[in-house]
Design a protein around this nucleic acid. Sequence first.
DNA 1: TAGATTGTTAATCGATTAACAATC
DNA 2: TAGATTGTTAATCGATTAACAATC
Lengths: 215, 215
Amino acid sequence: MEDREISRAVIGRLPRYYRYLGELLDEGVERISSSDLSKKMRVTASQIRQDLNNFGGFGQQGYGYNVKYLYTEIGKILGLDRTHNIIIIGAGNLGQALANYVGFEKSGFILKGLFDVNPRLEGVTIRGIPIRRMDELKAFIRHNDIEIAVLTIPKSKAEEVAGVLVEGGIQGIWNFAHTDLVLPDNVIVESVHLSDSLLELSYNISSSEKDTENN
Amino acid sequence: MEDREISRAVIGRLPRYYRYLGELLDEGVERISSSDLSKKMRVTASQIRQDLNNFGGFGQQGYGYNVKYLYTEIGKILGLDRTHNIIIIGAGNLGQALANYVGFEKSGFILKGLFDVNPRLEGVTIRGIPIRRMDELKAFIRHNDIEIAVLTIPKSKAEEVAGVLVEGGIQGIWNFAHTDLVLPDNVIVESVHLSDSLLELSYNISSSEKDTENN
DNA sequence: TAGATTGTTAATCGATTAACAATC
DNA sequence: TAGATTGTTAATCGATTAACAATC
């Protein structure tokens, strides 16, 4: 229906709005103005209003925004009005950590399967979910309506496994491998490059030290 | 010395340059032009040259960039020409996963200590490093020249623990707690909001589905 | 020298902020 | 009605891209 392209910057801020609204909701706050929210979130009120108006007019002049309503609406925008079946590929430390995190389940991301290249892990269960062999992967995606694959495997295997996921009809990949996957446009990739993040921290520390020396 | 402020966008791209240059180095590539690198990285050559020239002229007209030299120089910019002592606070699944990841060590981030609020974990070791009690934290930072703290604890405790870290004189916090820490300006915070990242993936999947329906 | 490719200036594009009329 | 605050247009700011002279 609507065709207006929403900018990457706006999309990147949506989850943060959702998070703050969720907290306000927990605190029992009923309504909030863009101005008050801007102080909490440390962004401009103008940006908040601009961002939200990409998706519709959720507020009311003279009143502000109803917290519960806005929270629900942003939830819908983020696709949280339904569940998403996910699998984790790579049952190493990180894969297991993510598998054990129940917060995702609460948001509707249901862990349906675990996979690992190591055949010795076959049958081991995490939260009752058995680790499967990679050769079952493609069929499993198809038969269990899997939407998202979490990739927690070494980069050496990532491109190859991603190929299998695409063949299986995966819609999105949450990529923790230390590489940028190049895949067809209809497959969404969201990468979490932990090392990159740590290096950015390192840069910021180093450069702030230099500032201190010079002032 | 230099005062020119480097934009956040540029800084955010540095680790990625470093990653690609490292791969080229491994492949034995000696030199590369901004144009060839731009094809590999799927950015414009113009952006690469602009970004790098924030830090100095690393290339040579008619030749391009020497891979090894550029890799080393970006490494220095990122603060990788020296080691950084780190601690992990929160020895849950994620904390343990990060503790077990040896890649960070290779980049010079040395794990010196582990801490957890759960006293029953005291003395348990990971890679030979014992888990300590929180009441040792402040002194440990001071006496062991700890620069970075990795925060893998629930958000309910994050703000409080961050306060202790600041008192101990920490320079940077790699924050995995599901909250935005508000700390003095001289303490660098780099947050990895995994849930936010997953929600962004969810949004992108949902919106691409809508596109498909309408085309 | 001729060709290649940088470093850098200028042009464009997009995102953020400011301002204010609309309206609850 | 008066006050508050949105939704939205306009102004500003910053980041990206294009272009090209400098130079290896």
